[in-house]
C-alpha cells in the first residue's frame, strides 16, 4: 500500500509540475500569438492599400448567424462610438435588436463569448468578417472580406481585397488543406493574381476555362518575381491587360479547386456589397453611430 501511495504521489507531482509550467508558458505566449496573428493579417492587408495612404485605421465587422426557434437571422458585431455593438437583423434587413458588446472582439474565441453574453437567447455561429481600411477622414480606402468557401477537399479560408469601387484588388489564401502539387497551387501568385482588377460587373459573369495559361500572362502574374529581378512592374502590367478580362484559367490538374475558389470569391463579394448597404442603412435606423461611414458622406 505504501508503495502504491508513493508511486501515485510521484506521478501526481510530475503532472502537477508540468501543468504548472505549461500554464505559465501559455499565459506568456498566448498574448504574443494573438498580437502576431493580428499583425500578420494587417500586413497582408496593407499590401493592398495605396502607397500614399497615410494613417490607416481598420474597422472590423464580424458577421454571425443567429439561430433561434427554427428561424435564422444575421448578427453583426460593429465598431461604434465608445465600443462595439451587436446588431441583429432579419433576412430582409429589418432591425430586430441592438445591444452593446462588452469585451475584446479581435480574437475569435473571446468574441464568441462576448456575443453569447450580448445575445438574450438563441445560438450564434461565426460566419465571416469584413474589415474596412479607413483614412483619417473615415473614407473607405479598401475593404477586405475574410471568409471561407468549399474547396476540393475541405474548407478554403480566403481574404479578398476590394477597392473603394468594389473592384477586386487581390486574393490571399489564408488556410487550406488541398493536395500539395495539385489543389494547393491556389496559393500561387499565377492563380491568385488573375482575380486582381476585376470589377463587380466582370466578377458577376466570371467563369473558369480549362486552357493552358499563356506564358506571357504567367510571367506578368508572378509579381513577386519582378521585384526580385528588379523589373519595373509597369512594363509587365501592360501584358496583363490583354488577358485581364478573360475568364480564370484553371490550374492544371485542379480544375475543381479553381472553380470552387472562383465561385467562392464571386459569392463572397456579391454578398459583401449587398450586406454593406443593409448594415449601413440598418445602423442608421437603429440610431447607432458606426466607426465607418457610407461613401460620400
Amino acid at each position: 500500500m505504501r508503495e502504491f501511495l508513493k508511486i501515485a504521489l510521484n506521478l501526481f507531482v510530475i503532472s502537477l509540475v508540468s501543468a504548472g509550467l505549461l500554464g505559465v508558458i501559455f499565459t506568456h505566449t498566448e498574448a504574443t500569438r494573438k498580437r502576431n496573428e493580428q499583425a500578420r493579417l494587417e500586413q497582408s492587408m496593407s499590401r493592398y492599400l495605396p502607397a500614399n495612404a497615410g494613417a490607416v485605421r481598420f474597422a472590423a465587422i464580424h458577421r454571425y448567424l443567429v439561430e433561434e426557434g427554427g428561424r435564422s437571422d444575421i448578427g453583426y458585431v460593429l465598431p461604434v462610438r465608445g465600443g462595439n455593438a451587436l446588431l441583429v437583423l432579419d433576412p430582409e434587413g429589418n432591425v430586430l435588436s441592438k445591444t452593446p458588446v462588452a469585451g475584446p472582439v479581435d480574437d475569435e474565441a473571446e468574441r464568441d463569448a462576448a456575443v453569447k453574453r450580448a445575445l438574450s437567447g438563441g445560438e450564434a455561429r461565426y460566419a465571416d468578417s469584413y474589415i474596412l481600411a479607413l483614412d483619417s477622414s473615415g473614407r473607405r480606402l479598401a475593404s477586405f472580406i475574410q471568409g471561407r468557401t468549399a474547396g476540393f477537399k475541405t474548407w478554403v479560408k480566403l481574404l479578398v481585397a476590394l477597392g473603394p469601387d468594389n473592384a477586386v484588388l487581390g486574393l490571399e489564401i489564408l488556410e487550406h488543406e488541398e493536395d500539395p502539387g495539385l489543389g494547393a497551387e491556389i496559393e500561387q501568385e499565377y492563380f491568385r493574381n488573375q482575380f486582381a482588377g476585376r470589377t463587380l460587373a466582370e466578377l458577376n459573369a466570371l467563369g473558369v476555362v480549362k486552357l493552358p495559361l499563356p506564358d506571357d500572362y504567367r510571367r506578368c502574374l508572378e509579381r513577386s518575381k519582378w521585384a526580385a529581378r528588379g523589373i519595373n512592374p509597369q512594363a509587365e502590367t501592360a501584358v496583363c491587360e490583354k488577358y485581364a478580362h478573360e475568364d480564370i484559367h484553371a490550374i492544371t490538374g485542379a480544375t475543381i479547386s479553381s472553380r470552387r475558389v472562383t465561385e467562392g470569391v464571386k459569392r463572397l463579394v456579391q454578398a459583401f456589397v449587398k450586406r454593406m448597404d443593409i448594415v449601413e442603412s440598418a445602423a442608421a435606423k437603429a440610431g447607432l453611430e458606426p466607426a465607418f461611414s457610407p461613401e460620400g458622406r
Binding site: 510530475i14 503532472s15 508540468s18 509550467l21 505549461l22 508558458i25 505566449t29 498566448e30 504574443t32 500569438r33
Partner: peptide, 18 residues
C-alpha cells in the same frame, strides 16, 4: 510521456506565437 508532452506543448505554443 508526461515529460515529452510538456515539452511538445511548449514548442507547439512557441511556434504558434512566434
Amino acid at each position: 510521456i508526461i515529460i515529452i508532452a510538456t515539452w511538445v506543448s511548449v514548442s507547439d505554443m512557441g511556434l504558434a506565437a512566434y
